[in-house]
Structure formats: structure tokens, C-alpha cells
Write a protein that binds this DNA or RNA. Structure first.
Lengths: 340, 340
DNA sequence: AAACAATGTTGGAACGTTCCATCATTGTCT
DNA sequence: AGACAATGATGGAACGTTCCAACATTGTTT
């Protein structure tokens, strides 16, 4: 079986000839601008359908000297937060006729440099960096050439970048406040001191504890963003003498590690130990886990980023200020009042 | 703060002038083809760096009348299988200088039609459909216009499509054979009869049981691909009289539901009940879950799809036959020999 | 020495659009 | 009636590349 005969695609001139008009009229009809008589308009529409005409995006980009394309650079497709954020981005950009061009920073052979080069060659009108990127001269340079938004990163690479992200500090306070309201006082934190989110969430934890007059109970054990790290930290926390009645973990994965450790220490959740996580991943929803977790408004963040971008594309616009989005708390079965 | 002064980007003519050569020489140097003297070559390279010249992709696409771009249509960015597959695709396409243009079918307002239109306008050289797409006339039409590969779907939309996917039948047999080797005989299956993967995996389960002379123990309970469905089915399975000693679930989520149900029925895993899943999702790796699961070679599938595509792009190539990739089994703590 | 191949270099045409200045027709206001 | 605005239609120039035919120079074979 061979490939089907693929003849040269119809161009605007073919359409013009078929409709008996000039190429300019076809162009006007297609773009919906200018004045065209009803008769010619329908003739053109007819010819377009007839010939299966599709405008050539490359030629259009060249003619308009703009691409209607936004570059989106991910650093981890696997992170559910990023996925939602990209969906939010996409939905809003689509409405405005902007196309997204996605790529994965890490996947790229030369650590993203070649990806960025490709995107810039495509004449992208804006750049969205999703997640925290490693330092890279190419990134900093790219950010200076096109309006750039860092989505879900605590800070952007260099100047000319607007950051849209979740308020990790506020989210942590939300979770801790929930535990306090339940009656907990001995609330420990499993942190991830090596990461930006880890630092912000710890700050929120400590602030809320202090605000509630529980400064003396502040206790942070270093872990990381993985189940393994949470497990290790929790074992340390639960094996000691004055063990906490509640743990706020830096994210859901770490919280899972805490749950495992609690099980190993024969502590029932939530009867003996309340556990709260962060990110509200699909994991937290699972019946076997049912984890109270802070929900980051990632879809909304993506949408907001798109709005800022669109505004930034207007001529004469200025660099908008950074934005922090307020998260919410999803209460599930892993938190309850401590027993007396 | 206003946008930084953005002057008109340098073109190939600017480079040619700066290097004291004709535009043709610059073009030859940039593409690395043809004969150019060493002196002029270095002069051009110098000028390129000097001016920060970046070739314009739209102009290049127009001139070459090809785009070096492959359209990738996802139907669910959240599915880890798809993510790995896309990573595999990307890695191989990148090596060959092909750019990926991704989009989400469902996210698109007009159910993918406008996404496909955009992709075709971009003159994509090939199309990769990742996951099972809903029927759509636009999809069928698109597949006829460019070489198309359906990745991870049991069947492609219409003609001219090559399917690259995992051998679900073989995977199911792998899991069941493992359980049989452990000594289980009463092995039940929690299925998902409404889905294509569900049907294939059930077929594998039954085939392996019959091959081992265990036809009389074949027992399938209908569920679906969710935790909820697995839970419901498992409750039915475990509450009855002659309950199985092992369960093979249609996927990891359903297996999780089985685990929950076992817990509720006070059955220890794996002592009282072995459980195997399918997909080897990150979930299965979690310490609290430690699920034996069939690993689908999704990264490899992506790579293979890319190879087929590249071959298909050669002039005079023919439609390659469908390919099934053989999965492997990841044995973890949820399966063990039945007690006597 | 002539013929030919290999190596360098060039400018013009093409790619398929949009943009723009121009022109034609009609209707409306003074 | 004349001036002007609104509507309608046009062809040529741009956009920034690649492609190609043609021409120059050198080295090698007959």
C-alpha cells in the first residue's frame, strides 16, 4: 500500500481564481476584515470549501510579521500542578486565537538551550516558563527578548519577568490553622528545606503557629518532596518522647511517607495522629489515603498568566507586577480532633 | 517600567552585509551544505554572533516548503502513560531535527477540530495521536492528509494510520502467569468491560488461565478503570463464599480499590490476598501500596512511533504495519504465595 | 592544450500570505 | 451639481528565507 496521491495544496490564488475574484478579496474574507460584497463573500466561502483550502501558517506569519504563538516551556510534564496550569493557560490563550507551543526543558538534549532557540526562531510572541527552571544563560537572554511569565515558580530568571504562582505561605497557614481549630497544639512540620516551596511553606507554618501563641510547639524536621523523605522525617518525629498529635507535611508525597511511618508506629490516622498535605494531588483523593490537603489553584493560575500575557502583548503595556494566588483547603479523613 | 527597546531583528541580509558576502553564502553556512571557503565561513559565523542573528522559522518553512514539525495530539495530559510516551517521542524526534507541536484534544473548544485545523495550517509533516480519541470527522480527514500514527490506542481513526501500542493481551498473561507460578489457582479478575484496554486484558487473563488448565476458576467481575469501580467489584468478589486468593485488576487504580476493599474485609495483603495491577503507575511504587504491576513500555513506544514516523517521511515509503510492544512485570509486595 | 570535474560564489525567482496605496462605485449632505 | 464619505475591489510590494541556474576559479585527466 502506497501513500495516497498528495497533490499540491490549494493556495489563495487558486481560491481567488475559482471564486472569480482577486486574491485580496479572498484574504479579506478569510480574516473577516474590510468590506466585501455578500455575493463575493459567499463565492469565496464556496471556493474554500470546494478546494479544501487551508491558509499556510508560515506564509501568514511572514506576511503579518507576527506568529500568534506563545512558547510554553515545562520542566516536568509529570507534575499534576503543571498539567492543570497548562490547561488553564491553554483555555484562555485559545479564546484569543493564540497558539501554544510546548516543550519540555529537561527532555531537551542541550538542557533547554536548543528548545529555546527553536521557540525564538518561531518568533514566539511571549514565553511562559512552567515550574522552577535551573539557571541558564539562554533562559535569561530569552526572557529579555519576549514578554515572559514564570508560572508556578517562586522567582523568574532575571529581569523583565512576571511571576504568577500560588501563595505557599498562605496555603501553609490555612492547613495549620485548620489543625489548630481542631484543637491540636503539638503540630509538627515535615519540611523540604532545599526547595523554594519548602522554604515558603515552612515560613507559613511557623507564622501561623506563632500567631496562635503556639511558638513553643514549633518543630520542623527536614525531609524532602518525596515519599521517602517524608517517611524518614516522620519516623524521627514519631519515635521520640513527646510526639506531636498532628503533622503538616510540605506536600502530598511527603504526607504519604508520614502515613506509612504512622502505620509502622501503630498510630491510627486520624485517631492518634492527624496528617495534612499540600497540593491536593489525585493521590489525596484516593479512598485508601483520603488526605486533607491544600489545593493550589493551578488552573486559575494558568488562566491568570494567560490574561497577563495578553495584556502584555498590547502595544505600550508595561511589566505587570507579580501575582500570588490564594489556595484553599480540602478537608478529608486524615485530620480530626486530637483525643483527650 | 516600559518594555525594553526592541529593534528590528537582524535578517540574513544584515549578516551578509556585515560579513561582506552574499546572502547565499550565509544561507549555505547556516545550513552546513555546499562549498564555502574557510575564510568566508568564519566571517559569517562571526557576523552571526555579533548581530545575535536568528533565522526566521516562518520564512524558512516557506522557502523550503516543509515545516520540520510534527503535530502531537493528546487526549489526556494527566495520564502518566501518555507522558512517558510523549517523552519517548520527543527524544527521538529531537535527534532528527523535528519539532513537536503538542495540543490537548479535549481542551480544545470545538472538540479538537480547531486544534487539528491549526496543526494542518502549520503544515505539519506528520501527526501523532496519543491515546484513544473520540470519533471525529476532522480526525479521520487529517489522518488522510499526513502520515499518522496512533500511539497507545487500540485502533486508529480510519485508513492510512499505523498503530503503535502495548500488547495488553500479553501483559495480562504475564501478570496471571506470575500469580499461577506463585501457586494461586483461584485467581479472579476485576475488569473494565466498557473500555478497549479492558477487553484486551480480560482476554489475556482468560487465555492464560485456560492455558494453565484453570478454566474452571475463571471469574471476572465488571468494574471500570477507577478506584471506585475496583472497590465495588472487589467487595462483591470478597464477600462471597468461595473467595479468590488472588486478584488481577485491569489497572492500578482499580487495584487500589481492591486493596481498600480487602482492608475493609480484614484481609491482609499479600498474606490472605495477592493483588496485581496494570500500568505500573507511580502509585504502585509507593511504600504504602507496593503493588505488583505490569509495566507498559511507554517510553519505548514513543520512541518506536518516532522511528516509524521518520521512516514514513522518506519519499517512496509505504504504510508500515501496526506494532505491539511487549510489556514487563514489576513484582512488588502485593503478591505472594497463598497460604495452605 | 583542450576538456572536464570539483570547488566557490552570486543574484534572481519562488514560497504564500498580508499590507497598502490606489481606483471605482455608490449614496448623502450642502 | 459638487464635494465628500462609505463601501467595494484591485494589483504590486513586502516579509525572510531557500532554491536554482549561471558564472568563476582551480585542479586533473585525456
Amino acid at each position: 500500500m502506497t501513500a495516497p496521491e498528495r497533490k499540491r495544496a490549494a493556495t489563495i490564488l487558486d481560491v481567488a481564481a475559482a471564486a472569480g475574484v482577486s486574491k485580496s478579496v479572498v484574504s479579506l474574507v478569510l480574516r473577516g476584515t474590510g468590506y466585501v460584497s455578500a455575493a463575493k463573500r459567499t463565492a469565496v466561502e464556496h471556493a474554500v470549501l470546494e478546494l479544501g483550502y487551508r491558509p499556510n501558517a508560515a506564509a501568514r506569519a511572514l506576511g503579518e510579521s507576527r506568529s500568534r504563538t506563545v512558547g510554553v516551556v515545562l520542566n516536568d510534564m509529570r507534575n499534576p500542578w503543571f498539567v492543570s496550569a497548562v490547561e488553564g493557560l491553554n483555555s484562555t490563550l485559545n479564546e484569543r486565537g493564540l497558539q501554544m507551543l510546548m516543550g519540555d526543558f529537561r527532555l531537551d538534549s542541550r538542557s533547554g538551550e536548543s528548545l529555546l532557540k527553536k521557540l525564538l526562531e518561531m518568533n514566539i510572541e511571549a514565553l511562559v516558563l512552567v515550574g522552577t527552571m535551573p539557571e541558564s544563560p539562554g533562559l535569561t537572554a530569552a526572557a529579555l527578548q519576549v514578554p515572559t511569565i514564570a508560572l508556578g515558580a517562586p522567582t523568574g530568571p532575571g529581569a523583565n519577568v512576571t511571576v504568577v504562582t500560588n501563595d505557599d505561605d498562605a496555603g501553609a497557614r490555612l492547613a495549620v490553622a485548620h489543625l489548630i481549630a481542631l484543637g491540636h497544639r503539638r503540630i509538627a512540620h515535615v519540611g523540604a528545606p532545599a526547595t523554594a516551596v519548602g522554604i515558603a511553606r515552612r515560613r507559613g507554618y511557623e507564622a501561623e503557629m506563632r500567631a496562635a501563641g503556639l511558638a513553643e510547639f514549633i518543630r520542623t524536621v527536614p525531609g524532602d518532596l518525596s515519599e521517602e523523605g517524608g517517611h524518614r522525617a516522620a519516623l524521627e518525629l514519631l519515635s521520640g518522647g513527646d510526639r506531636p498529635t498532628a503533622v503538616f507535611a510540605v506536600n502530598d508525597m511527603a504526607a504519604l511517607g508520614v502515613l506509612s511511618a504512622a502505620e509502622e508506629c501503630r498510630l491510627a490516622v486520624p485517631a492518634d495522629l492527624s496528617v495534612a498535605g499540600y497540593d491536593n494531588t489525585p493521590l489525596a483523593r484516593l479512598r485508601r489515603i483520603s488526605l486533607t490537603s491544600v489545593d493550589t489553584a493551578s488552573f486559575a493560575a494558568g488562566q491568570r498568566a494567560a490574561e497577563l500575557l495578553i495584556a502584555r502583548l498590547e502595544p505600550g503595556s508595561t511589566l505587570p507586577p507579580d501575582e500570588l494566588l490564594v489556595p484553599t483547603l480540602e478537608v478529608r479523613g486524615s485530620t480530626a480532633a486530637p483525643h483527650a
